[in-house]
Write a protein that binds this DNA or RNA. Structure first.
Lengths: 196, 196, 196, 196
DNA sequence: CATGAATGAGGCTTCATTCAT
DNA sequence: TATGAATGAAGCCTCATTCAT
């Protein structure tokens, strides 16, 4: 990658990060290209040099978020840890990620409304991959007789829902840090799974 | 209330219900007045006969949802039932309500972004009331030594989050009815609270 | 005229008066049918029983004002008074009329923009009649060697302009009554005409 | 000021001038953004690039007119001329200005209906400044025993009213040029003041 | 590359007008 | 007669997008 390419890539990443933040805060439709550009002291026009259109920006932001989540969960799955600790680690990472990025917006949205064709397939694929990884961990725990025999998909959805909701109520001004909160939450959620 | 007044009230309620559905489906900003009106075979203009503006429509829809939720939870609280059953009943009602209204959108939104002044206070008040009622049930269970000694607010938020998320994944075309699903979910979520 | 017809006529007159007031205050386009009706505790719908449309209301109001002005000036012309006193009387009446009706709006407007065809001709006719009457008085004064030999049309326009403008600055809360103010103004304006 | 800034300033001025003309012709409410833009072969959208909204356009047009008037009257006041000639010059300039700009609409309007807050204060300030300058000239003439001892404010209002009214009746297609007409009018109006 | 400017489609809102009751 | 409701045209305004410089 040449210097120029690197610069371009960096700029693209900057814009994506800015977009993620603003869209997460205000929602896709309420966010204007102006908003995204202004945050980077750019003009609207410049953003169009790097991204085809607003929809493209949304797609790439969302994709980036999902890829990061998938990367994270894959790494943890491949660690050499007891299943319970693995799942806890995933939950904690998920929560900290949501809080730090102040988003998960991608996850709150019905992708069918925003994407179509190939884009939609890719997004679905990434979401499915994450869900499957999650399910895999739950199933592993069940087989190890550490988790009780729950309906995997339902429980996965409950846990993800509870976690994604955190952004609605967690305040960075409160007493607990994101890590502490993630610790507490994952412990509570684990109760749904642990055999009693 | 005269016949005419009743008709007007009904129409208003119809519009609110339509608005709730569409906004829940597409989000506030992506929803047009046209969408809301078309669903009722009305014209945009007519909607303005009943509601001041789009914002007013959002406010009244949201308020209606919250009031219904509060009514529901209050009724259950006043029933003569064991605490565990009360909380389960609340959860089941919450889930069935969300699925049937195809919304909870109100609940997924940061009210500060959409309301201000007196409206915001009223909305906050209603939300707080619901949260407090929920907390009250949890605390009662803790005192009765039936629930374990959790952080009430955090657990409440987790449970509500998990439930509100249902709309993201539950499909009315699946095998389970809303009631069955609510039954299963409340059982799982109860595990967070029950002493082991 | 039957009782019913009388009632109708009265109602029409009421509406016209209301319309005159509101339109004078806010201007034709800024005035809504609602405004006019509300002032009489009526509904918009009712107004349409008496007047074809908004334009008709404007036309008839304007016509009424002009007819009243013409009636007034004709009456004064036919009085047995010295010419100077006649013209003063006309000016005072004009001013008091404007202040009391809080209008003259008709007069501030270019009729070509609001009327066409027969309506426009009638309005022009009434305006012309008023102007001619005014001119007639001025000419009479000139012939009597009491007024100096001015360009009649120009002076008439200046005087009418100065008078119509009164509504812009006269405050009913000030010290002087409409009549006192009319007295003072007509004295000043007379100076344009009086031989020195 | 860079070239680009100059261009922008020019465009803004163009739009203001266009707005002044159309609003003077049809009135604020009857004027559409389309009208204003079309006159300059622009699209509505472009106008919004330069002005926040229609109200802003009105405010800035009106302000510009008043500022020009104030500049004019101040310059004349500072000239070294007999008081009578000064006042005549002011009147003639006022009239020519009104005719050439085809407006004075600003001056025919009650600012309270269109502006509020700071805008209203600024407009009132500019109007007051003009009125005060006018009064100052009249008072100077009175003290010099050249004008008779009139009520300054009333006479000022009469003169301004008579002048602003000119736009209602002066036709550019008539025999007299704007300058000639201004000459004649100022002579007539001066009679209100001159001692006899 | 970046930006100021321009555009046009689309959404919100108002309001004159109509009409069934 | 009177009115509550409904309608649709028209006007304001925003904003994604394009383009010349």
């Amino acid at each position: 990658m040449s210097l120029r390419e690197k610069k371009t890539a960096k700029k693209k990443a900057d814009i994506l990060r800015s977009a993620v933040e603003v869209i997460a805060e205000k929602g896709y439709h309420a966010t204007t290209m102006e908003d995204i550009a202004a945050k980077l002291l750019m003009t609207k026009g410049s953003v169009y040099y790097y991204f085809k259109d607003k929809q493209d920006l949304l797609y790439q932001s969302y994709k980036m978020l999902l890829e990061q989540s998938n990367k994270m969960i894959t790494e943890i799955i491949n660690m050499n840890l007891p299943i319970k600790e693995k799942l806890e680690k995933v939950m904690k990472s998920h929560i900290v990620f949501i809080i730090s990025e102040r988003s998960s917006y991608g996850l709150k949205v019905k992708p069918e409304h925003y994407f179509e064709g190939e884009q939609l397939e890719i997004i679905f694929g990434l979401q499915e991959n994450y869900a499957n990884s999650f399910d895999q961990l739950i199933e592993e725990g069940i087989q190890a007789k550490i988790f009780s025999e729950v309906d995997v998909k339902i429980v996965r959805n409950l846990i993800i829902g509870a976690m994604n909701w955190v952004i609605q109520w967690y305040s960075t001004e409160g007493k607990k840090s994101a890590e502490e909160m993630a610790e507490i939450i994952s412990e509570y959620l684990m109760k749904i799974l642990i055999r009693s």
